[in-house]
């Protein structure tokens, strides 16, 4: 009964949405702001990767918020799971030697790749989030491959917090130097070089570490509890 009812509603909704959307012309995006970014982006921010310049400079405040959301996710998960007390650990079958060795071997490379991505965020596709996620996947691999080895939760937490604080401090430095929060106060440098784009690489380092720590922390909490 309920299923039929919801199906009918869904069909009606789908029909309605279809009619609504069919009147919206897709593929012709309004680009009021976009064109400006493409034209002036490199000049104003010094970042070759326009996406990065938008994410970290034009809309840096959003990024701060997004970083906070991730922080929240790990914090909330920790808060909820901290009180649940059922540590009935299943029997862990030890992974094979080949897997363990491969994991150990791969782990630093993955970390390095992640670091590369967030360091070059202003030059090539990628950035803090992507780099952080890759770092976290390195940790995931490590947890799967060598389940005995653990990293202290608190170090993840410390890195998370420090990353967030670093972001804010950079923003506040911009505030003191230029009068605007998150103002790009450092010299823009020459485009297409590593040391360019002012505060963008610095923030990306902070974000990369933070996101990596957060993701790894979430996985760690979950595995810890399972």
């Amino acid at each position: 009964m309920r299923k039929i009812f919801s199906l009918i509603i869904l069909i009606i909704l789908a029909l309605g949405v279809y009619i609504c959307i069919s009147e919206i012309p897709f593929g012709k995006p309004g680009t009021a702001v976009g064109n400006y970014y493409i034209e002036k982006g490199i000049e104003e921010t010094g970042a070759v990767n326009i996406v990065t310049s938008i994410v970290l400079n034009y809309r840096g405040f959003d990024t701060l918020g997004e970083v906070t959301i991730l922080f929240l996710a790990s914090l909330g998960l920790g808060a909820i799971l901290a009180t649940v007390q059922n540590k009935t650990r299943g029997v862990i079958t030890p992974p094979s030697l080949i897997l363990t060795t491969a994991c150990r071997f791969l782990f630093p490379f993955i970390l390095m790749f992640g670091a590369y991505i967030f360091l070059h965020g202003h030059l090539t596709p990628g950035g803090g989030f992507q780099g952080g996620a890759i770092i976290a996947s390195g940790f995931l691999l490590r947890y799967l491959g060598c389940p005995q080895k653990r990293i202290r939760q608190s170090s993840f937490v410390a890195i998370e917090s420090l990353g967030g604080i670093a972001f804010i401090i950079i923003g506040l430095l911009g505030f003191t130097a230029g009068g605007f929060f998150l103002f790009n106060f450092l010299p823009k440098g020459v485009a297409n070089t590593l040391l360019s784009a002012g505060i963008i690489p610095l923030i990306y380092i902070a974000i990369g570490l933070k996101v990596g720590a957060e993701m790894a922390g979430i996985i760690d909490t979950l595995i810890e509890e399972s």
């Binding site: 309920r2 009812f5 919801s6 509603i9 869904l10 009606i12 909704l13 309605g16 949405v17 609504c20």
Partner: peptide
């Protein structure tokens, strides 16, 4: 929860209709 989600969908479809 399923019913609650139906409420949301229902509301949306009423608005659209």
């Amino acid at each position: 929860l399923g019913v609650y989600v139906i409420y949301i969908v229902l509301f949306l479809s009423i608005l659209v209709i």
